[in-house]
Write a protein that binds this DNA or RNA. Structure first.
Lengths: 216, 216
DNA sequence: TACAGTTGAACTGTACTACAGTTGGTCGGC
DNA sequence: GCCGACCAACTGTAGTACAGTTCAACTGTA
C-alpha cells in the first residue's frame, strides 16, 4: 500500500472507453442481435469522430460481441442453434477436463463459495442469477490452472451471457440450484465420473432449453 | 461444382489484406518481438492512408500477434518465460482432455497422417518441421470435436509458431520424431494414461528447451 | 564522471473533410 | 405481383491537422 494508491491518471484511450461503453450498452440490450452499429450515428451521438468509433468497434470485435461484414460494418452477433451448440460443446469439454483433476482446497472453497453466491442470488437478487451461474462454471474451469484457458472461457462466457439476456431465458431458480448442487456435491465427494456426468447433463439440458427459446 | 467456380470478386477490404500481409511479414521476421509498428512509416511504404494501417493493425490484434500500448501503438508480442509456460500449460490441458476421448477412425487416420507428414518433412523439408509438428497437435485437439476449441488452439499455435521462429529453436529432428511417435503409438494402442503421460513429458521438455534458448 | 533536468523530434490519438463504391429499399412499369 | 431502375444512407479509404506523449540526445551541475 503506497501513499499514491488510487491516484492513477487516465491510462486509457477514448476508443477503449467507447468500446467499454458500447459493450455495456449492447449487453444491456441497446442493440439487439443482428443489429448494425452505424458509425456516423454513434459518432454524432457521442460527440466523437467516426474513425474513433471505428477503432472502438474493432476493439469490441476482440471480445467477440460484434463481427465485421464487408460493406455492412459492425454487426452484433446473433444466436443460432449451431452457435449455441458449439459454445456449449466447448464449455462441456473444458469443464469435463477440469473436473477430472483433483481440486486444491482453495479451489474447492472457491467453487463452494460460487455456489453459495448463486443460492443467495436465487432468493435475494434474481437478476444476478445468470452472472453467478457463469461464475460457478468459471470456478470449475479454474481447476485447470491455466490462465489462458481461464481467459478463453471468460470470452465464451461473455458471448453466452449476451445470448442468455437477449433470449430472456427464464428458468426457474430451483432447477438451476438443483443442477449446480448436484455438480458441487459430486466434486466435493471426489466422484469424478458423476461430476462429469452431471456437467454433461447440465449442458444438454441448457442447450435444449435455449434451442427451444430460439424457435420462439 | 458450378460453372462459376473460382469466379469471386474481391470480397475483402484493403485493411484485411494489409493485416494478412503484415502478419506474414511479422512471421517471416520482418519485425522482431517487442518492435513497434510505426504507422506513418508503414502507410508511406505501402501507399495507403494511416487510418487504414491502424485498422489493419487492429485486425492483427485479433490474431494475437501484436498488442496495443497506450501512446506507443502496436507492439509485436515478445516471448517471456511466463508466457511460454502459460501457452504450453493451455496446450497440455487441451491435448490431455483430447487424449482421454476415444478417437473415431477418421480422427485416428488424421493423426497418423499428420505424423507421416512430420516424418516426411524431417527428411525432405526441415523448414516445414515446426508447421507439421503443430499440425500434429492440432489433429489431437480435433478429438475434442469442438470447433471453438479448434479455433482457440489454432490461435495458440499461431502465437507459438512465432515464438519458435524468432527463437530459432534448432531441435534435432530425430528427437521430435521420437517424441511424437511415442504419443502416436500410445494413442493407437488406446493406452490413454500413457498418451497423457507422453504429452505431459513432451510439453515439459519443450518448455525447458525454450526457456533455455530464451536465456541466450 | 555521474546524474538530473531540459529540450526537441518523432510518433500516437483524435478530429474533420471528402468521395467512390456498396447496400437496401422504394417506386414506377409491365 | 414481379422486375428493374433509381436514390438515399452508409461503409471503406484517403488525406490533413494538431494536441499530447515518448524517448533519446543534450546541457548544466555537483
Amino acid at each position: 500500500m503506497s501513499a499514491l494508491d488510487g491516484l492513477e491518471v487516465r491510462r486509457t484511450t477514448t476508443a477503449q472507453q467507447l468500446a467499454d461503453g458500447l459493450s455495456e450498452r449492447i449487453m444491456a440490450g441497446a442493440f439487439g442481435p443482428g443489429d448494425r452499429l452505424r458509425e456516423s450515428a454513434i459518432a454524432a451521438e457521442l460527440g466523437v469522430a467516426r474513425n474513433t468509433i471505428r477503432e472502438a468497434v474493432r476493439i469490441l470485435e476482440l471480445t467477440g460481441l460484434v463481427r465485421y461484414e464487408v460493406n455492412r460494418g459492425a454487426v452484433v452477433i446473433a444466436p443460432t442453434a449451431e452457435k449455441i451448440e458449439a459454445l456449449y460443446t466447448a464449455r462441456e469439454r473444458l469443464e469435463t477436463a477440469a473436473l477430472v483433476r483433483t481440486p486444491r482446497p482453495e479451489q474447492l472453497a472457491a467453487i463452494t463459495e460460487a455456489f453459495d453466491a448463486l443460492c443467495d442470488a436465487a432468493t435475494n437478487d434474481p437478476s444476478a442469477i445468470v452472472d453467478r451461474d457463469l461464475a460457478f462454471h468459471q470456478a470449475i474451469v479454474a481447476l485447470l490452472d491455466s490462465t489462458r484457458l481461464d481467459e478463453f472461457f471468460a470470452s465464451l462466457t461473455q458471448e453466452l451471457r449476451f445470448y442468455l439476456t437477449v433470449l430472456a431465458k427464464d428458468e426457474t431458480a430451483d432447477e438451476v440450484i438443483a443442477e449446480h448442487r448436484a455438480i458441487l456435491d459430486a466434486v466435493r465427494l471426489g466422484d469424478r465420473d458423476r461430476a462429469v456426468a452431471e456437467i454433461h447433463a447440465h449442458v444438454e439440458v441448457s442447450v435444449e432449453r435455449l434451442k427451444a427459446v430460439l424457435k420462439n
